[in-house]
Design a protein around this nucleic acid. Structure first.
Lengths: 233, 233
DNA sequence: TTCTTTCCTTGAACCGGTTCAAGTTTCACG
DNA sequence: CGTGAAACTTGAACCGGTTCAAGGAAAGAA
């Protein structure tokens, strides 16, 4: 987690967006980048600030969130290592409409707008990858609006557990484990629930033997049963 | 509203996305387009169908909506003439994740994916306009998620009225008129409210003399008062 | 270890918004 | 016009989820 020995071009090459770029191109892009170390709680950007770059998280965790006038916070997205954020905000020439904050000590790579615009001018395939990336993000937001408006809290929790469980090791026999990446309160906000209600929902699912709660590890005991419990409730 | 005498290149030229294109380019793009007349209730596309084009509404009204398993519907967006939709879905090579249906008799221009990809290869400025357009859409969705999670029904209604009122003629002295573009039930769904509750909220606002309801015309009697009523309630 | 802080849980009261079930108005169309 | 369907309103009962308040469990720091 040291900024000095971090090889920017090598990291860029691992990103889907920058595949196919030659070594020279990668180095040129790296020129327009900036590496930042963040401590837990550090702000990456704030609502209203001008936006001249997008960000790729190398290590750690970052949350994107909105704040209500009253100060209440709604998590829009939890960013994991290897993922980027705020690409879209860069292209509208408008200030940030969200806040971003590190949830743990993190390493962040910020890519300046100019090098992206250059690359778009140089390679149409790059444009298409950029468009595809932003479109995928847009897909995700539409999905969130749908589930927010059409599903109950219970259904959103179940949907979250079932969507995330794929990632985890499926070799533990019949029991899948979802490790919550962050605090329960933060996951709750991501799902538009209060921490209290999220807790109640999880414990209801445990009481009917569909999951087992072990700190932040949720053991999914009965996957099909969990899916069924969603539609009826 | 006849398809035969509709000049595609001329219409394309009025779209922000296609500004700067030469007459020949516009004609080439027009080759990849298709004009469709739609009757009220006609489906433009359905969830799950493959997506090989995006759409520009020339005349009429179209709603984009999600359907819950139970058949309940949530309006994601109300499309007005001159506006486009489903650009983003085109770039992910995934099927439509929404449904689109005409609310009134409409005239629709569908632009094939191939001509867009061609244009991206030809002109980086076109890529940037495309990116800016999709990014703006993404902005809107983030805004919807925010207000959906952080604001009450009353606040969403007030926000809607205040955002829309700008468009209307501001010359009627001190009274602004917002004409609901579609049925109250549809606007309600757009705002994630039941028709019943939307009605109650509007009539509450009328009872405290902040608005006057005249069919689909909402006269905003007291703009600052309305804005204030939102924050306190 | 012990202290402190943060995170999580639990229960009871409460409320914003929904549902259901009328009734009324509006409007398109013959 | 009149008539039927669609759109809108209204009230009462209900419920999913929030709020508030308190206590308990984990995790870090000293």
């Amino acid at each position: 987690m040291d900024t000095s020995d971090f090889n920017i071009p090598r990291f860029l090459a691992t990103q889907a967006l920058f595949t196919d770029l030659s070594t020279e191109e990668l180095e040129r892009v790296a020129e327009g980048c900036q590496v930042r170390r963040l401590a837990r709680g550090d702000t990456v950007f704030r609502y209203g600030e001008p936006c001249r770059e997008f960000h790729v998280l190398v290590l750690g965790q970052v949350k994107l969130f909105a704040l209500s006038p009253a100060g209440q916070e709604k998590v829009i997205e939890l960013v994991q290592p290897g993922h980027s954020f705020a690409e879209a905000l860069m292209f509208t020439d408008k200030p940030y409409i969200l806040n971003a904050q590190a949830l743990t000590n993190s390493l962040l790579l910020s890519v300046g707008k100019q090098v992206i615009v250059n690359e778009i001018g140089r390679d149409p395939r790059f444009s298409l990858r950029m468009l595809a990336g932003i479109s995928r993000r847009l897909h995700g937001l539409v999905h969130d609006i749908e589930t927010g408006a059409l599903h109950t809290g219970m259904q959103r929790v179940i949907g979250y557990l079932l969507r995330e469980h794929q990632v985890e090791d499926c070799s533990t026999g019949e029991v899948y484990i979802v490790s919550l990446p962050v605090s329960k309160a933060t996951v709750a906000s991501r799902l538009s629930l209060t921490p209290e209600y999220f807790s109640k929902v999880l414990h209801e699912l445990e009481s009917v033997n569909l999951i087992r709660i072990d700190k932040r590890d949720i053991h999914i005991v009965d996957v099909p049963g969990l899916a069924r419990y969603g539609v009826q409730t």
